[in-house]
Nucleic acid binder design. Sequence first.
DNA 1: CGCACTTTGTTAACTTGTTAAACAAAAGCA
DNA 2: TGCTTTTGTTTAACAAGTTAACAAAGTGCG
Lengths: 121, 121
Amino acid sequence: MWPIRGMLADAGVTEQQWRVLRVLDEEGPMDPTSIAERAVLLLPSLTRILQKLEDKGFVTRERDESDRRRQIIRATETGRHIIAVNMDTSRKILTDLRERLGDDRHEVLIDLLNELTALDD
Amino acid sequence: MWPIRGMLADAGVTEQQWRVLRVLDEEGPMDPTSIAERAVLLLPSLTRILQKLEDKGFVTRERDESDRRRQIIRATETGRHIIAVNMDTSRKILTDLRERLGDDRHEVLIDLLNELTALDD
DNA sequence: CGCACTTTGTTAACTTGTTAAACAAAAGCA
DNA sequence: TGCTTTTGTTTAACAAGTTAACAAAGTGCG
């Protein structure tokens, strides 16, 4: 799992920036609140992350004219490029991990972690 | 697990400060490097945490005269009092969690997490 | 002895989690 | 319409993880 950080460092993004970009890449443009939910980030964190992503030219923001409190964030071509270039490596790191841990144990682990977080609702 | 934070917030310490105090309480005075190892903290983090604990009067530092690079950190009476007062609640929160998850699942979870971290060595 | 190398700990800089507070736009309502 | 409440987002402030740079003390070797 660790190698993910190295890969992202080389790509010039942090883990959270990567998650946000992936959400936008996979689900299309959306407002910050939805991104935060899907990327499991609190809004104040997301605010800062979006500022960095915007500075780097990986996302753009646009006011939603039908509700001017809202914004629509979209990944730029450059932003989507980061995903495209690193997705294979990312997937490989995860499948390697799954393999090293064992398919069955990996699944049990995920289930137990989900159960654990479900306890806090 | 969450209730731990509430308990500690009431006690006026953070999770990491609590961990450091527990290490010192359970294993006696020791140098920062050893504390970091036992509390699973990086030294730069520990440096800050010890400063806060010292400010609050929960620990004291003393130079090791046989090797003047080293320090010996010890919990004060006040520091140990924090542990004494909150230890029961802390233990109860953990046994409650174990119970809610199920003894067997709890154990499997711990094992899998250990296995996972062991993969990174 | 003098100098390179190692160990211990700190500081700095950056990113994020977290909580609380601030704000502006929109909605609901008298 | 004017006022209160709700919603979406940002800002502020503090603690911690992480990496790099650095100072001081100790070690070892020519």
